[in-house]
Design a protein around this nucleic acid. Structure first.
Length: 673
DNA sequence: AGGAGCTTCGT
DNA sequence: CGAAGCTCC
C-alpha cells in the first residue's frame, strides 16, 4: 500500500479522532498518513505562548497514542512553511489526497488556500471540512443573504437554522497506515502547576465535558457570576485545540436541556441556554474573523481609529504585574500569571479596566492574553477585546467605566478570591477588601498593609479616568466628523484607505516575545522579558513582585501626579446618535467585498458538493472548497519568512504591514468577485 | 396593582 | 444606547 494512493490527513486544531471529518474521509479513502506541522513562525506576532505550547505538546502526544491504538501514528514535522512541508510529505509518500478541517483565523484562511492551490497543482485531490463549528460562516445569513453584524441576531439564526448541526461522527475503528517517521519536535519544560490542574488530550476533554454536563451545568446560570471558578466548564482549551467537537458538546448539552425542560426544571433549562450562548460566542468569533479578517488588529467601527489611546508602558506593566491598586483587577492578573487561566467574568473586569481606566490600546492587552492564556484563541480574544472596547456594533458603551470596587463586591462578595491571589491583603476585612484606599489607617495597620509600600495606591482614580475618557471620546467624535467632512469635500481619498489607522505598535517588551529565540545572544533585558511570558509558580511570581517594588514606587507617584485631568472638561457634548449610526453603516458598507466573497464561497461550495459518494444533503456540506479569499500579491508566509532572518528588525510584522492585507484583499475580491 | 423613574446589564 | 428589572410611591 505504500506509495499508491494513500491520503494525508493534516491535523491542526482538531486534535481528536472522534467527530473528525477529515480523518473520517481519509480512513474511508484507504491508507492514512496523519501529519501535524509545527510552523509557529508563520503565526508572526501570534507565535503561541508558553502555556499554549505546553498544552499542544501534551495534546499531540495524546493524539499520537490514540492513533497508534487505531493502527497508525502521528507524523510531526518542524517547519517554517507549512505548505512546502506538505509538499515534502506528498513527495515522500506518494500520497494522492489531502484532507483537513477548516480554520477561520486570518492567517489560516490564507495559508490553507495556498496549500490547496499548491497541492492541487501537483495533482493532489484536496478536500476540507467543517469540524470546528455548528455552521459554516457562509451558511448563516440574514433574510437578505447578508452576514449578521450583531451577536444576538446571529445566534438566534443559528438556533433556528433549517438544518441541524451535523451529528458527531464516531471515531474510526481502525486506520490503515504507511509508516514514515520524521524527527520529533521537542518542546521545553512543562510546568508542574499546569500539569496538576489540567489534562490536555481528547479523552480528557471528553471527561471534562461529561463532568461538566453532569455537574456544574445545571447551576451554571446561578453561579456564573462568581469569580472562584469551580462552576465553569473548563472546556475552552480543549475546544481551542479541537480535542472535543463543538457539535458533540452541543448535542449532549441539548439532550440534557430537553430532559430538564420536561421535568420543568427552569433553572437547568436557563443554564443550558446561557452555556450554549457561550458556545455561540465562540462560534461568532469565527464568524467575525471570517467576515472581517482584520478584526484582530483593527476596530470594526471606523470612528474608533480616531480614539487616542494612552500609550504608557508603565501602566501596561503595572497591569500585567497585578499592581494597579485595584484588588479585583490585581488578583485576576496574578491568577492569570500563575495559572494561565481566568474566569470569564474576571477577564471582562481586567480587560475593561485596561481599556477604559488605563485607556491602553486594546491590542496590547489582547497580545498579553495571547501570550499567557492557556486557552489563548485569536478569534475569541479579538471578539472579546473588541466587545469590551466598544469597537463592534453591539459592544459595550464606549463611555462606560466599570468600577472594580463594585464589581469586586459583586463577583467576590467575601473577598476570598482577592485574598487567595493577593496575600498582602489577606488580613484586610471584607468591608475594605475591594477598596483598601478608603480603609482607616488603623485597619490597614492591623492588616499589615502600608499603601504605597506593600500594596499600591490606585494607579488611576476612577473619576479621573472617567473624565479623561469623556474627553478622549469627544475629541474622537470631533476628529471623526472632521474626517468625514474632508472625505465629502473630496479632500481625502475614499473610505477605509491607507496609512491613517496603522495600529499602535506593541511596546518593545512585548515585541521581544514575538520572535522568541532564534538563539541570539540574549541581552539581560531579553531574559527578563521572556520571563514575562512564562508562567511561574506562585512563589516566583511573588518574589518577582517584591523585586519590582522600588521601580513601581516611582511609577506610582508619577502616575499620581500625572492623573491631573482637567475636571471641567466639557463632557456634556453627547456623541450624536447619527454619527454613531454612521459608524455602523460604514462598517457594514466596508463588508461588501467580503459579502461578495462569501457569496462566491457559497457558490463554490454548492458546485463542489457534487464531489462525493454518499450524497445525502448532509454530506453536501462537507468537502467544499477551502474558505479563503485570494491572498495579496506577495504571500503572507513569504513575508514572515523574510521576517525571520530579520536583520535587526525590532519592528513587528503588524507595524510594517499595517493591516494592508485586508484592504488588498477587499480590492482583489471586488475585482475577482 | 401598577407605573414613573432609577439602576443594571448586555457579546 | 435600550431592554429588563427594581424601588418606591
Amino acid at each position: 500500500m505504500s506509495g499508491g494512493g494513500c491520503s494525508i490527513v493534516w491535523f491542526r486544531r482538531d486534535l481528536r479522532v472522534e467527530d473528525n471529518p477529515a480523518l473520517a474521509a481519509g480512513v474511508r479513502a484507504g491508507a492514512v498518513i496523519a501529519v501535524f506541522i509545527w510552523a509557529p513562525e508563520e503565526e508572526g506576532p501570534y507565535y503561541p505562548g508558553r502555556v499554549s505550547r505546553w498544552w499542544l505538546k501534551h495534546s499531540l502526544s495524546h493524539l499520537d497514542s490514540s492513533l497508534r491504538s487505531l493502527g497508525t501514528s502521528l507524523v510531526t514535522k518542524r517547519s517554517t512553511d507549512s505548505v512546502s512541508s506538505l509538499l515534502e510529505v506528498v513527495k515522500a509518500t506518494g500520497a494522492t489526497q489531502l484532507f483537513f478541517n477548516h480554520l477561520y483565523d486570518p492567517l489560516s484562511l490564507v495559508r490553507d488556500h495556498q496549500a490547496k492551490e499548491a497541492l492541487t497543482a501537483q495533482g493532489i485531490a484536496v478536500r476540507s471540512f467543517n469540524a470546528d463549528l455548528l455552521y459554516e460562516p457562509w451558511d448563516v445569513n440574514d433574510a437578505q443573504g447578508q452576514p449578521f453584524a450583531t451577536f444576538a441576531a446571529f445566534w438566534e439564526k443559528c438556533l433556528s437554522m433549517p438544518f441541524d448541526p451535523d451529528a458527531p461522527l464516531l471515531p474510526p475503528k481502525r486506520i490503515n497506515s504507511d509508516t514514515l517517521v520524521f524527527e520529533d519536535e521537542s518542546e521545553k519544560g512543562s510546568n508542574a502547576l499546569l500539569a496538576r490542574a489540567w489534562s490536555p488530550g481528547w479523552s480528557n476533554a471528553d471527561k471534562a465535558l461529561t463532568t461538566f454536563i453532569n455537574g456544574p451545568l445545571i447551576e451554571y446560570s446561578k453561579n456564573r457570576r462568581k469569580a472562584d471558578s469551580a462552576t465553569t466548564s473548563f472546556l475552552s482549551p480543549h475546544l481551542h485545540f479541537g480535542e472535543v467537537s463543538v457539535r458533540k458538546v452541543f448535542h449532549l448539552v441539548r439532550i440534557k436541556q430537553v430532559s430538564w425542560a420536561n421535568e420543568g426544571n427552569k433553572a437547568g433549562d436557563e443554564s443550558v441556554n446561557l452555556f450554549l450562548k457561550s458556545i455561540g460566542l465562540r462560534e461568532y468569533s469565527r464568524y467575525m474573523s471570517f467576515n472581517h479578517p482584520y478584526s484582530h488588529e483593527r476596530p470594526l467601527l471606523g470612528h474608533l481609529k480616531f480614539f487616542s489611546w494612552v500609550v504608557d508602558e508603565g501602566y501596561f506593566k503595572a497591569w500585567r504585574q497585578g499592581r494597579t491598586g485595584y484588588p479585583l483587577v490585581d488578583a485576576g492578573m496574578r491568577e492569570l500569571w500563575a495559572t494561565g487561566w481566568l474566569h470569564d467574568r474576571i477577564r471582562v473586569v481586567v480587560s475593561s479596566f485596561f481599556v477604559k481606566v488605563l485607556q491602553l490600546p486594546w491590542r496590547w492587552g489582547m497580545k498579553y492574553f495571547w501570550d499567557t492564556l492557556l486557552d489563548a484563541d485569536l478569534e475569541s480574544d479579538a471578539l472579546g477585546w473588541q466587545y469590551i472596547s466598544g469597537t463592534i456594533p453591539d459592544g459595550r458603551a464606549f463611555d462606560r467605566i466599570d468600577n472594580p470596587q463594585f464589581e469586586g463586591y459583586k463577583f467576590d462578595p467575601n473577598g476570598e478570591y482577592v485574598r487567595r491571589w493577593l496575600p498582602e491583603l489577606a488580613r484586610l476585612p471584607t468591608e475594605w477588601i475591594h477598596h483598601p484606599w478608603n480603609a482607616p489607617e488603623s485597619v490597614l495597620q492591623a492588616a499589615g498593609i502600608e499603601l504605597g509600600s506593600n500594596y499600591p495606591f490606585p494607579i488611576v482614580r476612577i473619576d479621573a479616568a472617567k473624565c479623561r475618557l469623556d474627553e478622549a471620546l469627544s475629541e474622537m467624535w470631533q476628529q471623526e466628523a472632521a474626517s468625514r467632512a474632508a472625505i465629502e469635500n473630496g479632500t481625502e481619498e475614499g473610505l477605509g484607505d491607507s496609512s491613517d489607522s496603522a495600529p499602535i505598535a506593541f511596546p518593545p517588551d512585548i515585541q521581544m516575545e514575538e520572535i522568541p529565540e532564534p538563539a541570539r545572544n540574549n541581552l539581560p533585558t531579553t531574559a527578563r522579558r521572556y520571563e514575562d511570558q512564562m508562567v511561574p509558580s506562585m512563589t516566583t511570581s511573588l518574589v518577582r513582585v517584591e523585586e519590582e517594588e522600588s521601580s513601581l514606587e516611582l511609577r506610582n507617584s508619577a502616575e499620581e501626579s500625572r492623573a491631573e485631568v482637567p475636571r471641567n472638561a466639557n463632557v456634556n457634548q453627547e456623541p450624536r446618535r447619527d454619527t454613531l449610526n454612521q459608524g455602523v453603516l460604514q462598517t457594514v458598507h466596508n463588508n461588501n467585498a467580503f459579502q461578495q466573497f462569501n457569496a462566491a464561497i457559497a457558490l463554490a461550495n454548492a458546485e463542489d458538493s457534487t464531489a462525493e459518494s454518499s450524497s445525502t444533503s448532509r454530506r453536501e456540506r462537507d468537502g467544499g472548497v477551502v474558505p479563503v479569499w485570494s491572498p495579496p500579491t506577495s504571500s503572507y508566509s513569504e513575508q514572515l519568512v523574510g521576517d525571520e532572518n530579520g536583520i535587526g528588525t525590532s519592528s513587528s510584522y503588524l507595524q510594517r504591514h499595517p493591516q494592508s492585507h485586508q484592504i488588498m484583499n477587499c480590492r482583489r475580491l471586488s475585482q475577482t468577485g
